[in-house]
Every structure is written in C-alpha cells, then in structure tokens.
C-alpha cells in the first residue's frame, strides 16, 4: 500500500524481533518435518508452507525445492499442515509443553 500523506509511521518489527517477544523452550529436536522430500522436489511448485507461515519457519534456501525448517521459530498455529496441498507436512506437538508459552494470548 502506498503511504498516504499524514499517515503516522508504525513500527514494522522484523520477524526476529516479533519472535523475540515469545517465551520459548527448545524441545531439542524438530517437531516438524516433511513426509517425503521427493514430493517437495518433484510435485510442489507453490511452496504453500512458506507462503502461509507467520513465523518464517519454512524457507526455500536450497535449490532442490525442499524447504528448510527453522522449527525453533514455530508458534504452533498449525497453518502449514493445512496449507500443504500435498499433505506432506509432518506436525507433532513439541514434547512436554516445550515450544511457545504465550503470556497474553
């Protein structure tokens, strides 16, 4: 959107600054995965997991079409699970209540 004259600036925090506000306990291993890397490589052209993620967990960093997973960013919304048109997202809850803890909710 083009900024209108007179519209005050609002803070547009980086995703890192946003995630920094959330209390997080690292489960030590990823609670997210792809079922079959081959589906990402050969069938997926849209990378819907990347488009939908509000926490920059899913990233296309390599050129093989398989997303890398920054699981420690995850806000546990589950959106990637529904977004993936190939049903290729493996999603488990982080163990024993680890992961995010919201204060305000």
């Amino acid at each position: 959107m083009s900024t209108q004259p007179g519209t005050p600036d609002v803070e547009q925090p980086s995703i890192e600054d946003r995630l920094y506000t959330v209390k997080y306990e690292d489960p030590g291993e990823s609670h997210l995965d792809v079922e079959l890397a081959g589906i990402c490589e050969e069938k997926c052209v849209t990378q819907d997991c990347v488009s939908v993620c509000p926490a920059n967990v899913w990233r296309m960093e390599g050129d093989d079409g398989v997303p890398t997973i920054a699981y420690e960013n995850c806000l546990e919304c589950g959106s990637c699970r529904w977004a993936c048109a190939h049903g290729n997202v493996v999603w488990e809850y982080p163990e024993n209540g680890s992961g995010v803890s919201y204060k305000f909710g």
């Binding site: 209108q4 609002v10 506000t21 926490a55």
Partner: peptide
Amino acid sequence: DDFKSHPAVAPLVKGGRMVEYSAHA
C-alpha cells in the same frame, strides 16, 4: 504490517511497545 499502516488504522496503533507476537489457526 500493511493493516497497521493503513491510514485509518495507523493513528490508533502508532507508538507503544510490542510485548507479544502470536499466531493461531
């Protein structure tokens, strides 16, 4: 970010300090 920057929204939310970011389905 774009929503917060809309001319009708920005004056209501400007300033302050972000204390939590969250996401849900």
